[in-house]
Simulated assay, not measured.
Amino acid sequence: MSALLTKEQLENFALQGLSYADDHVSDPFSIKDVSERLGISYSYFYHNFAFHMGEPFWHYVKRHRLELAAGLLRHSGYNIGEIGEHCGYATTAAFSKAFKQHFKESPKDFRRILILPNEKRTLQITETITAAIGSEAFHGLFNYDRCEKIKLPDSILYYSFISRGQNPVAEMIARMNFYQGLFKKMQTLYDVPQSRIITGTLDAVPVTDYEKLSMFAGLLVPTTAIAAHIQLQHNHGYLMTKRISGGYYLKLPVPMDFATAGIPMYNFISMNCKEGIFKMSGNHFFISLDTSKYSEIYIPLLKKHY
């Protein structure tokens, strides 16, 4: 099979596996489930994923689930048992044991850490790449009083990984114009003005190592847009998909591009979650792209903060 496929097609198989693991983070599944979904053999998928992603598939699944759990410990109001359940663990004991093996801290102790091991490094690297204007300009913009609580519908995200690996933020900035143009054409072609072009990461910032972050750009389409979903699935099967739960979000409009907004967005989320001003219902915050100089940040809210 490998002789008949291009390098890009082989990598896409691996990325589809990564996407499947993320979209089923709370569900039980096996490698066979993934390989059958992709229409390839268990062995072929197993070796192809390890070759392209640099780690065995099940190692990625476990790491990804525990890193997302760490993000929820950081920013959500869920208790430890609820976080374990959200991340695919049947019991609190099983989750706590796996978490401590991975992070060398219990979930309870991890929650008390003020600055995470990767936090300074990730933010410093990103700030070096994206620095464009002085931080004083952000003070008035990244303010809770400027936020609006809005309700978003259940949606499906059709996305491409625009960067992952050694320098994901720099790669994302370099490639974003192409993908933004691509998804704008899809909005017009499939007549989905209610959709949003968004960017973000599948990973838990700043828990995941910077070099392992997976950045995406995609089209977020309400599940009710049936005709558009049929066309997107038929014509763009190479795109990854992710279910995004509806509910209340904080929307924060900012007059800047997505890259400039990234660092103050994270600091805004972190500070407000630490102070209990709001708590998140998941790790799926994202930036909606409108124009090159205007973005909207969406942060999923825990129900009691509606």
Rank of each mutant, 00 (worst) to 15 (best):
V221W: 04
P193H: 02
F103T: 01
L252H: 02
N12P: 09
G262L: 14
T6W: 08
E296L: 04
Y89T: 00
R37M: 13
L114S: 12
Y78T: 04
P206L: 11
L250Y: 05
P28I: 05
I80W: 02
K293C: 05
D145I: 06
N267K: 15
S163D: 03
L4T: 07
D257H: 03
Q231L: 11
E85D: 06
N143V: 00
L152H: 07
N79Q: 04
K7S: 09
F278R: 06
S281I: 01
N235C: 07
G237D: 13
H75K: 04
Q166D: 12
A70D: 07
F57P: 00
I197V: 15
G134H: 11
I244E: 07
F278I: 09
P222G: 02
Q180N: 05
Y294I: 02
L116C: 09
M256F: 11
G218K: 03
A137I: 15
F278S: 02
V25H: 09
A90Y: 05
R164W: 09
T6H: 10
N48L: 11
E119I: 01
I287L: 15
P253F: 00
V221G: 08
N48G: 07
Y210S: 10
N272S: 08
K100I: 03
E105N: 09
T92P: 12
H47S: 15
I150N: 00
V169D: 02
G17S: 10
E136F: 11
V34L: 09
R63S: 14
L72A: 05
M186Q: 10
L4D: 10
D290V: 03
E296T: 02
H64K: 14
M280G: 05
E36V: 11
N272L: 14
L116R: 14
H52L: 02
Y159E: 07
A227R: 14
L123G: 01
Y298M: 02
I31N: 05
A21L: 07
E8H: 01
F278L: 11
M265A: 09
N177M: 07
N267H: 14
G200N: 02
E82M: 03
Q124A: 12
Q9A: 08
A50G: 12
Y42L: 15
A14S: 12
H236N: 15
L239K: 05
V207M: 01
G88P: 00
I299E: 01
D22L: 10
K303V: 08
Q9S: 11
H86A: 07
E119W: 03
A174S: 13
P28K: 09
L219P: 05
F57H: 06
L141P: 00
S41N: 08
M172A: 13
L10R: 14
M280L: 10
M271H: 12
Y249Q: 04
M271F: 13
H59I: 08
H139S: 12
H64M: 03
I129F: 09
D22Y: 05
L10E: 13
I299R: 04
K7M: 06
F258V: 11
L4E: 06
F268W: 03
I263V: 15
Y89M: 00
G88T: 03
H236F: 09
Q180R: 12
D203Q: 04
I173L: 06
